[in-house]
Design a binder for these strands. Structure first.
Lengths: 146, 146
DNA sequence: TTGCGTGCAAAGGTTTTGCATGGCA
DNA sequence: TGCCATGCAAAACCTTTGCACGCAA
């Protein structure tokens, strides 16, 4: 952890929880709640300050998913290349977020860059649609729960 | 305007201002300020309610650009059918929205549906990144101006 | 000891909601 | 006349900030 500052209990706890999340995304509130459940007295502002710092350092990545008000964080993959094959699918019905590794996205990215002169940033991009479970339900029930 | 409700002065004013923005994006606060400058007494909640409704109708598209706190809106020009083979590319730097027709999107869509069990809705999906003009600028100037 | 890190509470900004009133059809 | 639309203010939310205290180095 490229963390220049002091080593504190709170930092360790937060980093631990982030590690637990692994490849999965989380919000500041998620971390705060997990801390609370663990009996830690760590406050909201500390969580935000840590997440901010880690994001600036490049350890985390921050993104805002359309529709939700709170920002999501996720461990940043080591380098750009690792992230190139990674994209996010969000179900408009149940709200699930899927992480998919796929080489086809690479082709698409290259094509867009080459033929359309646009560099796609997959860390900021989310594909919206309907997951398998909700695919059928979509037709009958149009109630949006984002 | 596929607006099922009543025709009111406020609606007309807001739609007018949105029209003035043309292809360009704006926030709720932008609209509110423009209204204020025009001497309109239209309130914030009315603006939000209109933007919400127009977004639901598909007339507008809503984005949350990473880093900024307020949501952006922009006229969604094309209809569902036209958008099927259609990418939306939004530049994170200059805010331009590009519409790109490309057969590769079909391959990607099919692949995701078949192999990942997820139906992508392209009318709701925007790929974020940097356009040709901003691509070089991004490297030299890392200061985010969203 | 130095000064970063933390906790609490308050402030800030954006968006939503409740409720009474106003205006369109 | 019915019912949607509006305005205002308050609330809800997420996030940031100020300040005093605690703790790592």
């Amino acid at each position: 952890m490229a963390d220049g500052g002091y080593r504190t209990k709170q930092k360790a706890e937060i980093l631990d929880l982030i590690g637990e999340k692994g490849d999965y995304h989380f919000t500041a509130a998620d971390i705060a709640e997990m801390l609370r459940k663990k009996g830690s007295g760590t406050g909201m502002s500390t969580v935000y300050r840590m997440l901010d710092k880690l994001t600036e350092e490049g350890t985390l990545r921050r993104y805002v998913i359309d529709g939700s008000s709170a920002a999501c964080y996720q461990i940043a993959m080591a380098d750009q290349n690792a992230c190139r094959h990674h994209f996010h699918l969000k179900c408009l019905n149940c709200g699930s977020l899927f992480h998919v590794d796929c080489e086809l996205i690479d082709k698409l990215t290259d094509h867009i860059a080459t033929d359309h002169g646009f560099t796609v940033d997959h860390s900021k991009t989310v594909l919206y649609g309907y997951c398998e479970k909700c695919r059928t339900a979509e037709n009958s029930d149009k109630g949006d729960l984002q």
